[in-house]
Simulated assay, not measured.
Amino acid sequence: MRSSNPVMNSLSGAKGGAQRGAYQAGYPQQGYQDPYAGYGRPVAPTDDRPMTVDDVVSKTGMTLGVIILLALVNFGISLFNPGLAMLLTVVGAIGGLITVLVGTFGKKYGSAAVTLIYAAFEGLFVGGISVIFSGAVVGESDAGALIGQAILGTVGVFLGMLFVYKTGAVKVTPKFNRILTGALVGVLVLALGNLLLALFTGANPLRDGGMLAIIFSLVCIGLAALSFLTDFDAADKMIRAGAPSKMAWGVALGLAVTLVWLYTEILRLLSYFRGD
């Protein structure tokens, strides 16, 4: 169960839950009423039940709720104190990155704390970056419309890729994941190179709003959309394998990472066409 999303990839390598039968590790399966319970046979602990689709939906919903709430808070702060809002945006970006690294490489599989802390940091980042790209802080009248379009675009891509996955129009295979992972690494290298170029020379070809920047944003949006397929596939396989329910927090983290990236790229692309 490999995925191009590093969060999902680490989750799929977590132990505990593969190939559960009628009994799991000596415990009766959830929902099965063991007639011998209380006569020496232990019952399954309630916090180790198999993960379900409802778990994924509820945990993802809570994660997105925290992101939206903190984004609105930072957006509101920007209207009265732009300097503080920009500081919170930087804190959110750095904090979100550190939290993802901790969750991915620190073996924090299915940690609610890690996921919600990431959501809080990313909420601050999303709120601030929305102000920057939409021009709301300088009184642009169509800033709200631009943000609304980016949100609709993000939701539309998410639902579209969910439909593509459920219908099997695109098969998620190991080869597909390897190709997508390679493309994501390539984009990351280009982005870092462009950042260094901007810092040392002032040139910013991949983010200056020109034709090359538009193409780069379209590529990023396409890769983010395809990443949803690997996210859905990894989550589906974990559910089928009977992974513990707490792993739904890890699935929520992986989906949130992709959603934030997609929203940011769509908003950036829209700002290009507006000339900002």
Rank of each mutant, 00 (worst) to 15 (best):
Thr115His: 07
Val53Gln: 15
Ala119Gly: 10
Leu88Lys: 00
Ile117Ala: 15
Lys107Pro: 00
Asp47Lys: 00
Val114Met: 11
Pro82Gln: 03
Leu87Phe: 09
Leu87Glu: 05
Gly110Leu: 07
Met62Ser: 04
Ile132Leu: 14
Ala93Ser: 07
Gly40Ile: 03
Ile129Ala: 08
Val126Gln: 06
Gly83Ile: 05
Ala25Glu: 13
Ala22Leu: 14
Ala119Leu: 05
Asn74Val: 08
Val91Asn: 02
Glu140Met: 11
Val100Arg: 02
Ser130Arg: 02
Lys108Gln: 15
Leu84Tyr: 01
Ala120Ile: 12
Gly92Met: 12
Ala22Ile: 10
Ser141Met: 09
Phe80Ala: 13
Val126His: 03
Ala22Gln: 11
Lys108Leu: 07
Phe80Lys: 12
Asp142Trp: 01
Val137Leu: 04
Leu101Thr: 08
Tyr23Val: 14
Val102Asp: 10
Thr46Ile: 11
Val43Gly: 02
Tyr109Lys: 09
Thr60Ser: 15
Gly139Phe: 06
Ser141Thr: 13
Leu87Asn: 03
Thr63Trp: 03
Val138Ser: 14
Thr115Ile: 07
Thr89Gly: 14
Val43Thr: 11
Ala119Val: 11
Gly61Gln: 08
Ile94His: 04
Ala37Lys: 10
Tyr27Val: 00
Asp54Glu: 13
Gly76Arg: 02
Ile98Cys: 06
Lys59Trp: 08
Gly123Pro: 05
Glu140Phe: 09
Thr63Gln: 09
Ala113Asp: 14
Tyr23Trp: 15
Val138Pro: 01
Gly144Arg: 04
Ala22Tyr: 05
Ala71Leu: 09
Pro82Val: 01
Phe125Cys: 04
Thr104His: 01
Tyr36Asn: 13
Gly110Trp: 02
Phe133Thr: 03
Gly123Met: 11
Ser141Gly: 06
Gly139Ala: 05
Gly128His: 01
Asp142Arg: 07
Ala143Arg: 07
Ala85Ile: 00
Ser58Glu: 13
Asn81Trp: 05
Val66Arg: 05
